[in-house]
């Protein structure tokens, strides 16, 4: 485990050192960005509508019962942008993109493609890890902004159409506008950025550490997804604690 953590930190540090080369690898960054963004957009859209809807459905009737219906937009808005959208989108992307990264790099490791790069004096971190990490660090926060907007609309639709809640869309959105501030969006996006770095680093590290044949690739993919999700959920608590302290 300690070797894994050491390897992760080292890979992240070496990728940071390679950041000045990002422009040189921009075509690969755009390719990865397209894969992360366009490839995940529909999934993010569907997931966000239902997250917003379920959140409204769970807390709506309780708040209406206590005469707090006017605060529903704010509660759903805050819950989504500060916590649910960043965490759930990160988990979704860990499963979709993290798994793909680990599988692709793992397969390249097993079939000596990484060795071939090294013999050509091409650094695999510059060639493979840097574009992926850069793309996910930009792409995931953008997906979360999109998820926030779609999720809010999902919540608004459920509140206005559900008979038990019956809060108009205008009233929901007005309260959301009054309650949710830029700092709340930033709070969620800071967490998302860290989650993106975790997914990218863990997945690329697992890919590069792959040994064995197809079974080794499968093991790396599983480890990449599970480790990413575990780290995301643990870091979520500490990041939230830290950001709340800073906001005070």
């Amino acid at each position: 485990m300690f070797r894994d953590i050491g390897g992760l930190v080292l890979l992240f540090w070496r990728t940071l050192q390679a950041l000045p080369l990002t422009f040189r690898h921009r075509h690969k960054v755009f390719e990865q960005f397209y894969e992360i963004g366009m490839g995940s957009l529909l999934m993010v859209c569907i997931l966000s509508v239902f997250i917003g809807g379920v959140l409204a459905l769970e807390i709506g009737p309780v708040m209406v019962e206590r005469g707090l219906a006017n605060f529903l937009g704010g509660i759903v808005g805050l819950g989504l942008c500060r916590e649910l959208a960043p965490t759930l989108m990160a988990v979704l992307i860990a499963g979709r993109i993290g798994a793909a990264m680990a599988a692709e790099i793992g397969s390249m490791t097993v079939y000596q493609e990484i060795d071939a790069l090294r013999t050509m004096n091409i650094n695999p971190i510059h060639y493979l890890v840097l574009p992926r990490l850069t793309a996910i660090a930009i792409g995931l926060p953008m997906l979360v902004i999109f998820a926030d907007l779609v999720g809010w609309m999902g919540g608004a639709v459920v509140c206005s159409t559900n008979q038990q809640i019956a809060v108009s869309m205008q009233s929901f959105l007005a309260n959301l506008r009054d309650t949710v501030e830029i700092k709340d969006l930033v709070h969620g996006l800071v967490k998302t950025f860290v989650f993106a770095l975790v997914i990218g680093t863990v997945s690329c590290h697992q890919g590069l550490a792959t040994i064995g044949g197809p079974r080794g690739i499968g093991r790396s993919v599983t480890k990449a997804v599970v480790n990413s999700i575990v780290l995301i959920l643990i870091l979520d608590y500490f990041l939230t604690h830290l950001l709340v302290q800073i906001e005070k």
């Binding site: 397969s107 493609e113 050509m120």
Partner: peptide, 24 residues
């Protein structure tokens, strides 16, 4: 300048033949 020809070829499967040859 050192080069190695691997047993399997170790071509990058995501690239075309031309891209593989011109990679360096």
């Amino acid at each position: 300048r050192l080069a190695m020809v691997f047993q399997s070829g170790a071509l990058l499967n995501s690239l075309t033949v031309g891209e593989n040859v011109g990679l360096y």
